[in-house]
Design a protein around this nucleic acid. Structure first.
Lengths: 96, 96
DNA sequence: AAGATTTGGTTTATTTTATAAACTTGTTTA
DNA sequence: TAAACAAGTTTATAAAATAAACCAAATCTT
C-alpha cells in the first residue's frame, strides 16, 4: 500500500514555501510572497500552519521602521520534506 | 515562478488512482479500492472527477451477475500526469 | 423459502482546507 | 495633513475531501 502523503506538505502553497526555504538560510514574507505569487492573506495563514507544525520558524523584526517577517526552515521541516518526497516518489515513480 | 500544480492531480487519492492506472491496462473498482484503502464513497466521487476531466474511462459491466466497474487511463490522462510530475519536480527538486 | 448479510457501488451531508476580501497599524509621499 | 502605500492579520466564502447513509441485487443461513 502507498505511504500516506503528509497533508501539511501536500499543499501547493505550503510546498512552494518549503521549497524556497530549503534553498536559503532565511527568506522574508515579501520575498516569499512575490516568489509564490500568493496573496498576503493566504500566505499568512499557510506560514502560520507551517510554524505551528514546527517546520519553520518565524521571526518578526523591523527593517528600519517597516515591519519585517523572516522565515527559515527547521531541522524537523527538512526531515518532513525528505519523507514527503520519498513517499511522493511511490506515486509518481511510474510516470517517467 | 513555479509552475502551477494541476489541482485535479494534486490530490492524494486521485494521484494514487492515476499511479495505479499508469501501470496497468485497466483496473476495477474493487481492486483500486483495496490498493488505495479508500472508502467506496470517496473513490466513487474521485473516479467521477477523473472521468469528467477525460483522464480515465469508466466502463460498467458484469462479472457473472455482479456489477463491475473497470477503469483505464486515457492518453490525455497520461499527458496530464507527465506535466504534473514535471511541475512537481520544481517544487521538490531541492529536497535530495 | 424468508430473513440476514455481503457485494458493489451511488448520493448526500459534514468536515476540512484553501482562498480571497476586508480590515488594521503604521509609514511615506504629495 | 490627507491620501496612498506597505506589511501583514483576521474573518468570511468557496471549494474540496471525506464519511455517513443509502440502494439494489446477490448470496448465505437456518
Amino acid at each position: 500500500m502507498l505511504k500516506p502523503l503528509n497533508p501539511l506538505l501536500h499543499s501547493e502553497l505550503r510546498l512552494a514555501v518549503m521549497s524556497i526555504l530549503l534553498g536559503v538560510e532565511s527568506a522574508d514574507f515579501v520575498y516569499i510572497r512575490t516568489e509564490t505569487g500568493a496573496t498576503a492573506g493566504n500566505l499568512s495563514v499557510q506560514l502560520d500552519k507551517l510554524q505551528r507544525a514546527g517546520y519553520i520558524t518565524i521571526e518578526k523584526g523591523f527593517n528600519g521602521k517597516m515591519p519585517r517577517t523572516t522565515c527559515s526552515m527547521t531541522d524537523l521541516g527538512r526531515e518532513a520534506m525528505r519523507e514527503y518526497v520519498e513517499a511522493l516518489k511511490e506515486y509518481i515513480g511510474g510516470a517517467r
